[in-house]
Design a binder for these strands. Structure first.
Lengths: 330, 330
DNA sequence: AAGAGCGAAGATAACGTTGTCAGAACCACT
DNA sequence: AGTGGTTCTGACAACGTTATCTTCGCTCTT
């Protein structure tokens, strides 16, 4: 900036004014300054700039995902990025792999960089450690799961409703022995989906068989093993509701191996890529990560713009997509 | 920091020393300062910190991807993130959608934030605009496609070799009429893959039929339409080599609709998720995005550590995965 | 012709931190 | 008591920028 000012023969502040399009610079000078800027290939240092600025915003936000490489996370990421781009805000993204320590480390790093806001798919159960941060003015939006012991905005899918819809769909096709495969119950979404499953059975007056419920499953292989166990039962299920992405894939693999894929119905929570090319095509309750991300970003930026209305808990609808596997009769 | 110093009853510099674990602070004072830091929930401002630091690194890098939500990009992202995390570096990521303008805008934003280095999957054909940036010390690594008119490190897949392997595989299974579906030839990878296709046919002494080559295809639907046209020919192909992810999906859809999926062989370049669950399972030439990302990050950080050896062009191997669709006889 | 009023431009301090240096306190020797 | 050397510690300037205030020169009143 010194160099630009010297070359244009003006003071520092004049360069600053030109760069920030502030009024009060004569056209002649502005032209001289612009020329100097291009000639020297000058770019204002955004970090230094925000240092002195009043109520300085860094024009950056932090994004804590489960894994930037998983389809749900990355679709979220993209939706948020698009929203941020429109406001000239850059996005830091990080994966925490469902590890609460990593979650708080990441958020700590974001904090060190003075991000304006944070969107987080929480891993840990307790977020009281963010209280000070929140009070200091950092916008905070929780996605997919609500915050633990902290009053903060959230955007989540209709997990209970989606699970109810899936199970009712199977019931409507005549199934009575419906198995449930779920993730760790410490994860609130897994809990909600199990809740929906139980609720749907209850309202239909169908007996709830504990041996058909398998939870704490974390990956496709474990899910596949669970399915094999289910079919070793005296009275195996005629339908399966898988409460998560990876478990759906594991379930399909297991059915395929047992050559049951055309005889046992299956509905998964959360869409899987290429689900329509598999035989039979996989019926799912699809979340809408794009919409979730958009809602989260919208909420975040509204807060950044000064909205101080009470905490919002946004629930986005899910959609049952019947592709074949969920319509197999018992 | 003022507040911390006041509370601990020390000078600013002493707080700074404690925060940076510099030697020369007595244990008693250090303890007092630490207590004040926790009490006030103080965190050093990383941006201000780097401002004064000599040869200050921001401990951030920028990542320009085609789309943070596509599987190849996001796998890259993840590998790079892991590498960066180990060095306590944060990653800005952005999507440029194969748009050269967006590419340079993104890189401009990164520059404003003074990122230490940039890893880019280039969209535009010309990168001379990065020359100054590079000379100013920002590390630069190009991924998937080399830089245009700029001497910079790159990490790319063995596109020619992979295409040759795919076509030779089809030839070995007896095919002679092999179609090629490719992206815009302005994209160097598309060009390389077409090159490999042509080369393999040539070495095998098989006639090259121009009507079997369709390029400039950008999405699954267009690819599917192209496949339909191919089968309207007098002498349709007996095998298809799809030169890209989305085109493979489009191709499979088209074959499925024409009920040809068990009669026409297909190999795709780049793996697709769930390719093993489709019937027949899709044979592909798989790239290794994780390895590519790792190589790119390694190269970037080596440069950041001061390595000034000549430009490196890293070629990562690809792997043919035979799953069924590529082994169908003519 | 003097003063008011205005717009343009720059001088200076400040943002939160670290580099540099000088001072203070202590130690062991003469 | 004086010297020289450590070891701690803080004052101060500096990083690249913007906020505030002052100065300068001009036009417009009366």
């Amino acid at each position: 900036m010194q160099d630009v000012a010297a070359l244009a023969g003006v003071g520092l502040k004049t360069v600053s004014r030109v760069v920030n399009a502030e009024p009060g610079v004569s056209p002649a000078l502005e032209e001289r300054v612009r020329r100097a800027i291009t000639q020297l290939n000058y770019r204002r240092d955004a970090n230094a700039s925000m240092l002195r600025r009043l109520g300085g915003k860094t024009q950056t936000i932090g994004l804590v995902l489960e894994d930037v490489a998983n389809p749900f996370s990355s679709a979220l990421h993209r939706a948020i990025e698009d929203f941020a781009r429109a406001r000239n805000v850059l996005v830091f993204a990080g994966s925490c792999e469902d590890d609460a320590t990593r979650e708080s480390e990441l958020i700590g790093s974001f904090r060190d960089r003075r991000v304006d806001g944070i969107i987080v798919v929480p891993a840990g159960p307790d977020h009281t450690y963010l209280y000070e941060e929140q009070r200091a003015g950092t916008a905070l939006v929780f996605v997919d799961r609500p915050a633990g012991h902290l009053d903060a905005d959230s955007v989540v899918s209709d997990n209970v409703g989606g699970a109810v819809a899936a199970v009712e769909h199977l019931l409507a096709h005549g199934h009575r022995r419906i198995a449930f495969l779920g993730d760790l119950l410490s994860i609130s979404t897994a809990q909600d989906r199990l809740h929906g499953y139980t609720q749907a059975l209850l309202s239909a007056g169908v007996e709830h068989v504990p041996s058909l419920v398998r939870t704490g499953l974390r990956d496709p292989d474990v899910a596949a093993a669970a399915v094999e166990e289910l079919f070793a039962l005296d009275e195996p299920p005629t339908a399966i509701f898988t409460g998560q992405n990876l478990l759906t894939i594991g379930g399909v693999h297991a059915l395929r191996r047992a050559e049951l894929e055309r005889r046992v119905a299956l509905i998964g929570f959360d869409d899987v890529p290429l689900a329509d090319l598999v035989e039979p095509a996989i019926s799912v309750v699809a979340q809408d990560p794009q919409r979730i991300g958009q809602a989260a970003a919208e909420l975040l930026f509204r807060r950044l713009d000064g909205d101080t209305s009470p905490t919002v808990h946004h629930v986005t609808p899910v959609k049952l997509i019947a592709r074949g596997s969920g319509e197999i009769p018992p």
